[in-house]
Design a protein around this nucleic acid. Sequence first.
DNA 1: TTCGCATATATGATTATCCGCATATTTAAA
DNA 2: TTTAAATATGCGGATAATCATATATGCGAA
Lengths: 114, 114
Amino acid sequence: MLCPVTFYKALADDTRLKSLLLITEQQELCVCELMTALELSQPKISRHLAQLRKANVLADRRSGQWVFYSLHPALPTWAQQVLKQTLLANELYLAPCRQQLSLISERAVTQSCC
Amino acid sequence: MLCPVTFYKALADDTRLKSLLLITEQQELCVCELMTALELSQPKISRHLAQLRKANVLADRRSGQWVFYSLHPALPTWAQQVLKQTLLANELYLAPCRQQLSLISERAVTQSCC
DNA sequence: TTCGCATATATGATTATCCGCATATTTAAA
DNA sequence: TTTAAATATGCGGATAATCATATATGCGAA
């Protein structure tokens, strides 16, 4: 059972909120994708993702050397809807991140990964 | 224009979240009502309300010696919906506060105020 | 004007949060 | 088994949030 204030503390940071909204939009992202999308250091991303994991907001799945994060399957419906609404109503907030994300997906066609 | 992360920082504290949800539910509440509803000190309530006021989440209206707080008229629709959804999906979170609130409204019939 | 109630704010101490840096862990490939 | 890539975490140090206490302000009544 997710306490509302715990949930909102998870959203109360720029790095975490952007990560969460990007994951809401893209279903699943790995750490290196978030690193380049947000243009932030690896430990910083990783630490915030760990917080979201501990709060049961995100779930992680390892696939080889990559760890993919997605919304936790047990995340309450109301919390999911809050994320979706925030995403839809704040299109521009994620624009620079999407820009960066699109660059790696192009690169990924030719090169190995992130 | 309200930045999403600013809004969620406003919700990321127990006192503020409960105050906001109570105000969402009751339309308008004064400081002394929130004090007894949350069973917290006057300066503590006042300081958190000031934060919400500065963030343009709440609006204040003075009526004699009382100051009534309500959701800011310019609060974006998405933010209003987030509050409403949180309220509906977390009935029990506010139960003790409502209990305390009902006690003063009974008292208010006979006595002066809060 | 003086008093009392409701509310706001200043101050200093405590605590929580966030960060960079270094290092550990896990996995795949050589 | 050594190496490199991806990810996680330990450890201070800096910054910000929160709190309790004391005090200030604004308003109505006497």
